[in-house]
Amino acid sequence: MRDFLFIIRGGQDRYNQNSPEEMQQHMQDWQQWMDTLAQKDMLVGGQPLMNEAKTLIDGGQKIIDRPLAEGKELIGGYLLIKANSLEHAAGVAKECPSNEYHCSIEVREISPM
């Protein structure tokens, strides 16, 4: 099996419209999905990300403080999984609970060093 990174963007606008009960259910759905991946020895790790960031530009000469608070640009989190192929990993991404909120998930294979 090879390592893949899921970069999860967007969806927060719809998610933030949920009631507390709906948010709790969504978190339970996430936990169940990740537990299933772990049971299949596919889950390597992953976390949600905070909205604020620093971006280094010009070869690291400048640092920009960026609140990333809106829209499809916002990376809400990442997941590292093991899968047999890019197609297999994309199929796993289709089951992500955040798809319900019309997020986008970029699936990238991690290149071995």
Rank of each mutant, 00 (worst) to 15 (best):
K62D: 01
W33D: 09
E109Y: 00
I81D: 09
E22Q: 06
A93S: 07
D29Y: 02
I64S: 07
Y78S: 10
E95F: 00
L79Q: 04
W30Q: 15
I63F: 12
N84L: 08
G45T: 05
G60C: 15
L68P: 14
I110G: 06
W30S: 12
H102L: 13
Q47F: 12
G10H: 07
A83S: 08
G11C: 03
E21T: 09
C96V: 03
C96M: 03
S19A: 01
E95K: 02
M50T: 14
R66H: 12
Q17Y: 04
H26S: 06
A53S: 15
P67H: 13
E22L: 04
D29L: 02
Q47D: 11
S19H: 00
N16C: 15
C103K: 08
P97Q: 09
L49A: 05
W30T: 11
Y78A: 07
L43T: 03
S19D: 01
M113I: 12
D29H: 03
C96Q: 04
L37P: 07
Y101R: 00
I64R: 10
G45E: 07
P20N: 11
G76F: 13
K72Q: 11
C96A: 04
F4I: 00
S111E: 13
I63M: 13
I81Q: 10
Q24L: 12
H88Q: 07
G10K: 13
Y101W: 04
E106V: 00
F6L: 10
S98V: 13
V92M: 09
S104T: 10
A38D: 11
P67F: 11
H26D: 04
K62C: 01
L43M: 08
K82Q: 03
E70P: 14
P112L: 12
Q24N: 11
Q47W: 14
D35L: 10
V44A: 08
E109M: 00
A83G: 13
I110K: 01
R14H: 13
Y15P: 00
P97V: 05
M27Y: 08
L49M: 12
S85E: 05
K62N: 06
G77Q: 08
L43W: 08
A53P: 07
Q28C: 08
C96L: 01
A83I: 04
P20Y: 10
N99H: 08
E100W: 07
R9S: 01
S98A: 12
M113D: 12
A89Q: 02
P20I: 13
T55W: 05
I8A: 00
G76D: 10
G10Q: 11
P97N: 07
Y78I: 11
K40M: 14
C96I: 05
E22S: 04
Y101E: 04
L43Q: 08
Q31E: 14
Q17L: 11
R9I: 02
G60E: 12
E109R: 00
L5C: 05
L56W: 15
Y101F: 09
P48R: 11
Q39A: 10
L80A: 06
I7Y: 09
H102C: 12
N16S: 13
K82T: 01
F6P: 09
I110C: 04
N51G: 15
L56S: 14
H102A: 15
A69R: 14
A69V: 15
P20R: 14
S104C: 01
G77Y: 07
S98Q: 15
H26G: 06
G91C: 03
E106W: 02
V92E: 05
M50L: 14
